[in-house]
Design a protein around this nucleic acid. Structure first.
Length: 379
DNA sequence: AAGGACTGCAACCGCTCTACT
DNA sequence: CAGTAGAGCGGTTGCAGTCCT
């Protein structure tokens, strides 16, 4: 047996509200309030409407200080950022935009913003793809050098060929950290830098989640600036995982090749570094001076703001899962009907670029919670 | 000019959560 | 503790207006 209906369906009016109905409802609520009982309200004032319908009408259209239409660029950015962070939690998003209702934002997103964002995303991907192609080989050489330095590659090894790595010992995360106390210092340095830029970290002891809030004013920053933030968070994410030795913090949906759920099937970037016991994670960080930075102003700006600019180059070599997820597969995930793929594809592009396949892309202006459900943008 | 396709948005539906008994 | 009802929420629908052919 289903639950009882909230009202007499046969005797309630449906469809658009008339001005008279609006006036009746508004006048009553302004004078008496809702009385805490929407179901009983329409009968009190003689409206042939369902209580839920009255509530919706009041909340979305009749209550004071409601704004309709005319979304600003800033509001667009906030909505996009929150959507990519927390998904379709319209009421929460509406809470960030005074005068906007969840219904309004939901409609606006579904009809316009989604298309606008996807268009922008596609453009960015085209640019990133061309940049990646040019810098990929260079990056691979640099990475192999760093790994070789760390694990003492035998003399005679051709370190100009990133694919020509010899069989290497498995290096557990804990050991790597012991060898690299710098890692923890680096993490603190990046945190300080992000805080200097106006971001905020907070920790929820109940859920053990760490949150990061970007400064709102970076919403309109260039894509290189956004990559900078993203890379910084990637470093924190990856090193945090190393610190905790807890991989479950990271979304594995698109990274786990072992279970065939969308992970890359391409060969590992570093043959011989695979750890069948799932324990190997090698992190290494490049100071800014080592990096190719196309935007000199950007580099200068961020050098002034923090101790270092690090490129996240964490290699998570995990059960044959690799950083080499193809861009084509990431792009192929984008469809008009599945906006969540936008989040995932961005993650994969970022992961590919930084060599951290499980890195989490952090859209600017977002509250970031390092918990799987939130990172995935799931309900 | 007509009619089919598309778009935007108000409103509804059905589910979950929460407070109350 | 279980049952119930109301509140709240997100997904979906239906319709009016606009655009396109």
């Amino acid at each position: 047996m289903g639950r009882a209906p909230c009202c007499d369906k046969a005797n309630v009016k449906k469809g658009p509200w008339s001005p008279e109905e609006d006036a009746t409802l508004k006048a009553y609520i302004e004078k008496h309030g809702t009385g805490g009982n929407w179901i009983a309200l329409p009968q009190k004032i003689g409206l042939r409407r369902c209580g839920k319908s009255c509530r919706l009408r009041w909340l979305n259209y009749l209550r004071p200080n409601i704004k309709h239409g005319g979304f600003s660029e800033e509001e667009d950015n906030i909505i996009c950022s929150f959507y990519m962070s927390i998904g379709s939690r319209w009421s929460i998003i509406a809470g960030q935009l005074p005068g906007r209702t969840d219904n309004d934002i939901k409609n606006y997103w579904n009809t316009r913003l989604k298309k606008k964002l996807l268009g922008r995303q596609r453009k960015q991907q085209q640019v990133q793809q061309s940049r990646r192609t040019a810098s990929f080989k260079q990056g691979m050489i640099k990475r192999s050098e760093n790994i070789a330095n760390f694990i003492n590659i035998p003399a005679g090894f051709d370190n100009q060929n990133p694919y020509d790595l010899p069989e290497l010992p498995v290096v557990p995360v804990a050991n790597y950290q012991t060898h690299n106390p710098q890692l923890i210092k680096d993490q603190a340095s990046i945190k300080n830098m992000l805080i200097n830029l106006g971001g905020r970290f907070s920790h929820d002891s109940d859920t053990n989640n760490t949150s990061f809030q970007y400064p709102i004013d970076i919403l309109s920053t260039s894509s290189s600036d956004q990559q900078f933030y993203q890379s910084s968070i990637n470093v924190l994410s990856c090193t945090s995982a190393a610190n905790n030795n807890n991989y479950s913090q990271f979304p594995s949906t698109h990274c786990d090749a072992s279970n065939g759920t969308g992970g890359s099937s391409s060969p590992t970037m570093f043959p011989g570094l695979n750890d069948q016991n799932n324990n190997l994670q090698v992190d290494h960080l490049h100071p800014l001076s080592e990096l190719e930075v196309n935007d000199n102003n950007f580099a200068h700006q961020h050098q002034q703001l923090g101790d270092f600019y690090y490129q996240a180059t964490t290699e998570t070599l995990n059960n044959g899962s690799t950083a080499g997820t193809s861009t084509a597969s990431a792009e192929s995930e984008i469809s008009w009907g599945d906006i969540n793929s936008l989040v995932y594809s961005t993650q994969m592009v970022a992961g590919y670029e930084t060599g951290c396949p499980q890195a989490v892309t952090v859209p600017p202006g977002l509250p970031i919670v390092f918990a799987e459900s939130t990172l995935l943008g799931l309900k």
